Computed example of a mutant assay.
Amino acid sequence: MVDPDTSDRGTLEGGPRGPITVVVVDDHPLYRSGVVRTLADDGRFAVLAEGSSAAEAVELARTHAPMVILLDISMPGNGVEAARQIATVAPGVHVAMLTVSETDDDIMAALQAGAKGYLLKGVGADDLVSIVAGIAAGESYVSPGLAARLLVSLNAKGSAPAAAPSPLGGLTAREEQILRLVAQGLSNKEVGRKLALQEKTVKHYMTNILQKLHARNRVEAAMMAREAWQPKQG
């Protein structure tokens, strides 16, 4: 999960890399226009194209190769199916779901399809631009509340994936401390407050943790941690 962090916007702006290119695909024209306007008003983004279906999303990702493509799940053809196809035809594009769905099945399906982000449509404008900028930079985001509930649900069903032998053995004491808090559903900002660390520092630790665990995102890392630590807690 990427926490909204408006304090370091300058590190992601302009320069030799140019604007953050985005495609927005949603079958509700008014909502889609609002998202496009929010991104354009921020100044860091260039919206290359808009669409309203899964088929359009795949074609737009292939032809425009944006840094980020925002997909609605419930649009014609299904956004999750679009994400799966985009992972094949345009693997360099970061997919983020922007949806009203809070169901565990949709969240897991989106992450398994390769989505780097899972945002709810109630997200505020400032948070939206910060999250999308983070996803463009290679970070992942699932809202803390959804991530925590998903972990509880997976553990209740006994469906958390089995961890590799000693998956957490390579973590430092500080990294393990941070991961324990993340596994409880805390955001980067909340972890920083608890440990008296800057949010940027927590993000740096989380990047190292994901690399060491070979986890695609922090939800997966948290599931691995909970599974590994379960015997100690039981």
Rank of each mutant, 00 (worst) to 15 (best):
M1H: 10
R9Q: 14
L12A: 14
E13P: 02
E13L: 15
G14A: 13
P19H: 03
T21F: 09
V23Q: 05
D26H: 04
D26G: 01
H28E: 14
H28R: 09
H28T: 08
P29W: 01
P29T: 03
Y31W: 08
T38A: 15
L39F: 03
R44M: 10
S52H: 08
A54C: 00
V58P: 05
A61G: 12
A61T: 10
D72V: 05
I73R: 05
G79W: 03
E81S: 12
A83G: 02
R84Q: 12
A87H: 08
A87T: 11
T88E: 10
G92Y: 03
G92A: 13
V93P: 00
H94I: 01
D104L: 15
D106G: 05
A109Y: 00
A109S: 14
L111R: 06
Q112N: 10
K116E: 03
G117W: 00
Y118T: 04
L119Y: 02
L120V: 12
K121R: 11
V123Q: 01
A125D: 13
L128G: 05
L128T: 04
L128F: 05
L128C: 07
A133W: 04
G134E: 00
A136Y: 00
G138L: 08
E139C: 06
Y141I: 09
V142R: 00
L146F: 00
A148V: 02
L150N: 08
L151R: 11
L154F: 10
G158A: 06
S159L: 15
P161V: 06
P161T: 02
L168E: 02
G169P: 04
T172E: 06
R174K: 11
R174L: 07
R174D: 13
E176I: 07
E176S: 14
I178G: 04
R180Q: 14
V182I: 15
Q184E: 13
Q184Y: 09
G185Y: 14
K189I: 10
E190V: 03
G192H: 04
R193W: 01
L195N: 01
L197S: 00
Q198S: 07
T201H: 02
T201D: 09
V202R: 04
H214T: 13
V219D: 03
A222W: 05
M223V: 14
A228E: 09
W229V: 14
Q230E: 12
K232C: 11
Q233P: 01
G234F: 08
G234I: 12
G234D: 11
